[in-house]
């Protein structure tokens, strides 16, 4: 488990991270969301030990991260940085070797990843000759090729087409399923919503929200319900403790002052006929994000 505790970082007089704390559990996909300049990349670089925090610490299973732990991480930087004129497979083997793998293991891992990421046919092409999407896949392979125990990925989905997104999601999910903590940042909130177990929202260098997707939805859910029945729903307006927000014949959206008030609406609707749907409205990640960074 990765544990980030009270991390503070300043550049000159500008504090870019303030008391940042969160955890990335084993086998847990954690989305790291924030606007540009919010502090995501700085946090990730501190996690890797490439950058030192002014205060705070990063722990792996309760032990502070040291330089020698770097090989345990798979990191994909936002600024890509593969050698443009080097062939894809050669580049992956090279990076794996720098991480300490034997030549045979490096070649085996490279072939395996290229297969899983759909790049086998491009193995002999130079990086600069690949499409942007394939360059991105190669970059992801570079982060994974030394078989890391932890993944820290900065915008791994940017520039990927929907098909490639699915492929990469599947590869990352495979890592998490085998117990690796996976932290990734993304501006594509729909992907984060689909893929993540946990979510960390950062703004202006401070963690604004942190927890499982379910917990965050619960925390930020409004007392708003929607109902669809076979008949007219106009009667809801006269119910005590209820304010109708939207109404369209057999469909209504309303806010209930108490749980009892909302349940009373449901009970009354059943007495009038079949109820097709009745549910509490769940906020989307985008809604939560907008709400917490506002």
């Amino acid at each position: 488990m990765l544990d980030i505790r009270g991390v503070t970082k300043s550049y000159g007089t500008r504090e870019v991270l303030t008391d940042v704390s969160f955890t990335v559990g084993d086998g847990c996909m954690t989305g790291f969301v924030g606007a540009n300049g919010a502090g995501k990349t700085t946090t990730m670089r501190i996690i890797l030990g490439v950058l030192s925090p002014d205060e705070g610490t990063v722990l792996i299973d309760s032990v502070p991260v040291t330089a020698s732990d770097r090989r345990r991480f798979g990191y994909m930087p936002e600024e890509r940085g593969l050698y443009p004129k080097m062939k894809v497979a050669e580049q992956l083997v090279y990076l794996a070797r720098l991480h300490g793998l034997s030549p045979a293991s490096a070649r085996r891992n490279t072939a395996d990843l290229l297969e899983r990421l759909g790049l086998t046919e491009r193995a002999g092409d130079t990086v600069e000759s690949l499409s942007l999407g394939n360059q991105q896949r190669a970059q992801i392979a570079a982060a994974l090729v030394h078989d890391p125990e932890f993944l820290v990925l900065d915008e791994p989905f940017s520039g990927l087409d929907p098909l490639a997104v699915e492929v990469v999601m599947s590869v990352l999910a495979g890592y998490a399923a085998q117990g690796a903590p996976v932290l990734f940042s993304s501006h594509q909130l729909d992907i984060v919503e689909r893929l993540c177990d946990d979510l960390v929202i950062i703004a202006d260098g401070e963690i604004r929200a942190n927890g499982s997707g379910e917990a965050l939805r619960e925390q930020h859910s409004s007392p708003r319900f929607e109902i669809r029945t076979e008949g007219d729903t106009g009667w809801i307006r006269s119910q005590p403790g209820i304010t109708v927000i939207d109404f369209d014949g057999d469909f209504a959206v309303f806010e209930a002052e108490t749980d009892a008030a909302s349940q009373a609406v449901l009970r009354h609707a059943i007495t009038l006929g079949a109820v097709q749907t009745f549910s509490q409205q769940r906020p989307s990640l985008a809604t939560i994000f907008k709400e917490v960074i506002a």
Binding site: H99, G100, S102, R108, N109, D147, G174, A180
Partner: peptide
């Protein structure tokens, strides 16, 4: 996830690869 964990990197090996 593949099975080959990183071993302790050898300076000579890294030097050779980089060179």
């Amino acid at each position: 996830m593949t099975t080959s964990r990183a071993t302790t990197p050898r300076v000579r090996s890294a030097f050779y690869e980089l060179s």
